[in-house]
Design a protein around this nucleic acid. Structure first.
Lengths: 147, 147
DNA sequence: GTGAGATTGTTGACGCGTCAACTAAAAATT
DNA sequence: AATTTTTAGTTGACGCGTCAACAATCTCAC
């Protein structure tokens, strides 16, 4: 496990990620008008039974900086994908609600996204390789967590 | 190889990448003041014997949009890391030259970057796992290339 | 209850990334 | 040689991401 092996694998990993995400989210943007962060926000809200989350819970689910979410929600509100409503139980909080337009958009986007992930990622890899990714991700994330 | 397996592996991959890059480049920024794109530009120039590349060659090496490189070089020029010089053989081209300050910066940054990649990535994975990453990246990149 | 500190969220500044429109020079076509 | 096309690079607008500063609300010790 030489240093050159690590560098090489790191380079391959970076190239794959860049190209893959670039392709998937370019296709998504062209077919649905959604960016990657748009998609993540709508996807997370759509998974809730009432299509609603408190801002703080959305933030935790996405693991985003608070200002990042704030800026993102401002833009998405202006486009009519979500609305902000006041929270009655906690004056600091905001409730984020998926609009009808938001639901329609994410429904179309989900299948487009799934198709792209399947095509460029899922179809290319076998069960062992998918398992290897899970294992590797677990090891790396554990290391990051324990620092 | 169910659809759920693919979705799960994709999620693990995305989480790993986000956390890993976030950590590595946050450390790099704190110790050297360089962003990820700063590092990539300096690293590529530093690999040249004369610390110099034509803008177009730098663009190909990085696989960046032309406007992206143009904006990046403007900021880096203002900070004194590189300079632009006119190309005598092709009036359209620009020569990008690493300054003394740029060389000093990338020299420190390289070891910082290597240490972080090793610590959070190389040390955690064994030879088989590094090989698996190379194999997976090759498969995915091939698929993207053939579309 | 009151005041200290933590939690939730917004804003502004600035770097980053893409797209489209543009300039200028080289290459190819005629 | 003149015209067209391709190539190299810049610019401006706008979305994205982080940081630091700020405001408002809640919590809890007292």
């Amino acid at each position: 496990m030489s240093s050159a092996d690590v560098t090489h694998a790191w380079g391959a990993f970076q190239r794959m990620r860049t190209q893959l995400a670039g392709r998937i989210y370019r296709e998504l943007a062209r077919s649905t008008g959604l960016s990657e962060p748009d998609f993540e926000v709508l996807f997370t809200l759509d998974a809730e039974p009432d299509k609603t989350l408190r801002s703080i819970d959305l933030r935790c689910a996405l693991d985003w900086e608070k200002s990042r979410l704030s800026h993102q929600l401002r833009r998405m509100t202006e486009r009519g994908l979500v609305t902000r409503e006041t929270c009655t139980t906690d004056g600091r909080s905001t409730i984020i609600v998926l609009t009808a337009a938001g639901i329609e958009t994410i429904t179309a986007a989900r299948s487009c996204h799934e198709a792209a992930v399947s095509r460029y990622f899922g179809e290319v890899l076998n069960t062992e390789q998918l398992a290897a990714i899970n294992q590797i991700a677990t090891l790396v994330l554990d290391r990051l967590a324990t620092d």
